[in-house]
């Protein structure tokens, strides 16, 4: 893999389509994944696993092409897989193997010499928290430990890119926290690019630098998480008691105000930072205490729901990114 290849986006797809019989799993997906941790979000059946298998060269697309770290996934599949780690969604571990033996074996399959593979298997199992249990048979492991072995086998050969398919599946909340923390370490401390497929917004939100949202085989949003969830054109204000007078005072100053049903919270249109002064002055004028004041941000859920419903979505960069993607896909 050349330096020029590494300068390119980690993953790039152009009009990638895959059909299973009558089911269109991916519909002309064009996307670009940059360095760091990228969340691949979507409900079950959105096309996430299909996308990952296409990126590994395990499936052949009906249309389009894809590159991972500059390598074409179909013409250079073998060379590429030496630099990619894959953690499948389903159970895929041989229960009668020792964890150390299996991880070492996977390292050797990815081209590591035997002695290196033995050393790296020990180190990798240590990094995923199985240092003490590495000489136990995998069959005796808990679900969380098995997920760690799956992660270790994807990491042992020091991949440039890791494709993790639903890595928190079947884990209890504590196990999920640990797995997400581990993935964060891999992406942000070990310098390995991670594509994290999940249907859980919270998992992705906690660790991803950027996000791609899929629904019914289409990209409904993509971009850096900070941009997607950036501030909208409103400021949220919550008052102690009824805030109707405060709202009227702000409207008198020329601001648009949308109040919620009980009148305790409302959204004030944002034009510039002067809005904060206006809110302060209105609060003093009406003698209404303010409990909470914040520039309103989108959550991933907001973006996802907007994309899923096909609505234009909230104004701002997130919507712009979504729109750009949809136009590109067309």
């Amino acid at each position: 893999m050349t330096n020029a290849a590494l300068a390119e986006p980690v993953v790039r797809t152009e009009n990638l389509s895959k059909r299973y019989g009558n089911v269109l799993a991916l519909d002309h997906v064009s996307l670009s994944v940059s360095a760091g941790c990228t969340g691949l979000l979507g409900p079950n059946g959105a096309g996430k696993s299909t996308m990952i298998k296409l990126l590994l060269g395990l499936l052949t697309p009906d249309e389009g092409r894809a590159t991972v770290a500059g390598c074409d996934v179909y013409t250079q599949a073998l060379a590429l897989r030496a630099f990619v780690g894959y953690m499948p969604e389903h159970d895929c571990l041989p229960t009668d193997w020792l964890a150390q033996d299996f991880v070492r074996y996977m390292g050797e399959l990815h081209g590591l010499p035997a002695r290196v593979a033995i050393q790296r298997a020990s180190d990798t199992l240590y990094h995923v928290g199985l240092g003490e249990e590495r000489y136990r048979a995998i069959g005796g492991f808990s679900t969380g430990m098995k997920q760690r072995v799956k992660l270790a086998q994807a990491l042992v050969h020091d991949p440039r890119v890791m494709l993790l398919d639903e890595p928190t599946n079947g884990l209890d909340p504590a196990g999920r926290d640990e797995m997400i923390a581990l993935i964060g370490r891999i992406a942000h401390e070990m310098g390995i690019h991670v594509i994290l497929s999940s249907h859980l917004l919270t998992d992705v939100e906690r660790v991803a630098d950027s996000v791609i949202m899929l629904n019914q085989g289409r990209v409904i949003a993509q971009g850096p998480l900070a941009e997607l969830t950036t501030a909208t054109g409103a400021v949220s204000v919550r008052t102690r008691g009824q805030g109707a007078a405060l709202a009227q005072a702000l409207q008198a100053r020329g601001y648009s105000v949308e109040s919620d049903r009980n009148g305790y919270e409302f959204q004030v249109g944002y034009r510039s930072d002067e809005v904060y002064d206006a809110i302060r002055d209105a609060a003093v004028e009406t003698n209404i205490p303010i409990m909470y004041l914040k520039r309103r941000s989108l959550s991933l859920e907001d973006i996802y729901l907007a994309g899923e419903s096909g609505e234009p979505g909230p104004a701002g960069p997130a919507a712009q990114a979504t729109t750009q993607v949809k136009e590109a896909a067309r």
């Binding site: 395990l58 073998l78 897989r81 030496a82 499948p88 159970d91 895929c92 571990l93 399959l109 990815h110």
Partner: peptide
């Protein structure tokens, strides 16, 4: 048989082999 039953082949086929 065990490789297929436990779906380990999916990992093997994702490594640099055909």
């Amino acid at each position: 048989c065990a490789d297929r039953r436990m779906k380990v082949v999916s990992l093997y086929f994702a490594s640099p082999i055909r």
